[in-house]
Design a protein around this nucleic acid. Sequence first.
DNA 1: TTAAAAATACTCCCTACGGAGTATTGTAAT
DNA 2: ATTACAATACTCCGTAGGGAGTATTTTTAA
Lengths: 213, 213
Amino acid sequence: MSDNIKKRKVVIVDDHPLVIEGFKNVLKDHLDFQIVGQFRKAEDFQNFMATEVVDIILLDITLPDGNGIHICREVKQANPEIIVLGISNLSERSIVKQMLQNGANGYLLKTADSNDILYCLQAAIDGEIVLSQEIRELFDMADLRKPEDIPELTKREKQILQLLAEGKKSLEIAESLFISPLTVKTHRATLLQKFQTGSLVILINKAKEYGLL
Amino acid sequence: MSDNIKKRKVVIVDDHPLVIEGFKNVLKDHLDFQIVGQFRKAEDFQNFMATEVVDIILLDITLPDGNGIHICREVKQANPEIIVLGISNLSERSIVKQMLQNGANGYLLKTADSNDILYCLQAAIDGEIVLSQEIRELFDMADLRKPEDIPELTKREKQILQLLAEGKKSLEIAESLFISPLTVKTHRATLLQKFQTGSLVILINKAKEYGLL
DNA sequence: TTAAAAATACTCCCTACGGAGTATTGTAAT
DNA sequence: ATTACAATACTCCGTAGGGAGTATTTTTAA
């Protein structure tokens, strides 16, 4: 099975101990892989990476103190040869896309089973971009790796978006930010325009999809 | 540690194989527990339960073909002595409450670590209602076990709620359901009333919180 | 320091939404 | 058969939302 004498050094970054345990269980009987680190926080992981050499990183998207997408980019910039596989419960297109655009070698859902995981690891080593089955279905023949246009928002816009997502009316927002309701209206209009929709609900849905909320 | 000769029979119901692996890893070295079943689908679990006897059920809330809350109620109605612990990523109050109201002996977040899990299992066996740390923080001194009034919706209302959550306007909904926009308006008004709010966004937020979407 | 971007605030206009109430028809369960 | 609820559809009214455009001040970056 292995064409290498050395084991691949694997680190797991996930804030769910159960998931870490799960990966350990899946990998522990396989001679090709050796888990050399497990981290629940981005910071711990980054400290580790400052001094250690690894081959494969299993990286959760949602971490208590950071964002898997950014971490992925940093790792890949410093060490493009390291294989980074995103792992997450989230099967949203934009997130998967962002991971891949930031250099990830693949993306696994936590619903993947042992075989799936081992297959994806091997395929990633072989240079493929691996997506677990469900993710692949999400995309059909969609233009992967072409950036989804996530609108850039100003500080104020993000603030107002947040309040809108809480169900606040323009007047309430105006009061809590000490500005004119008409200004709120302007910001809201800009948000709708940037998200290319005429519906508050769609605006908020998209914002959530893009990880802005 | 154990005051029993027989091992407690544990089953795990979770659609994430990694989580199952994690629990197996946590429990496998403990003489008190024995995993006698693991299921990714509610149906498989229910077939198993029809013929087997178990002591403890670790039950995910979100399953591909069912709802942990309902399953919990069924199990507890048939066998009140079985210990049911909810496990989930979701730390929303209403969901935890619903589990407990339906007889669950506790609720663990998947972020719980091995010690946390073992402690909670033991405490549940000792007759306590166990909540993992983060969940307990959510509640403070809140009136647990008093039902949160989750509105009962009719078929049509659920249908329209769904479309509203997708950002559809009343007119679009009317067209796709072949009814008058005024009827849609009536249903929307009923929804807002049942959720006790005047904001579509809040309506949708609550619906999501209650697991209706 | 000067140009660009952000935040502020307004106009006008029209439509969609939200509150309150009434009414008819259909469809369950008792 | 009859009571209850669901689903349908309407009226009237007022406000909030949304489209399009203009304009001033403040902040930030080149």
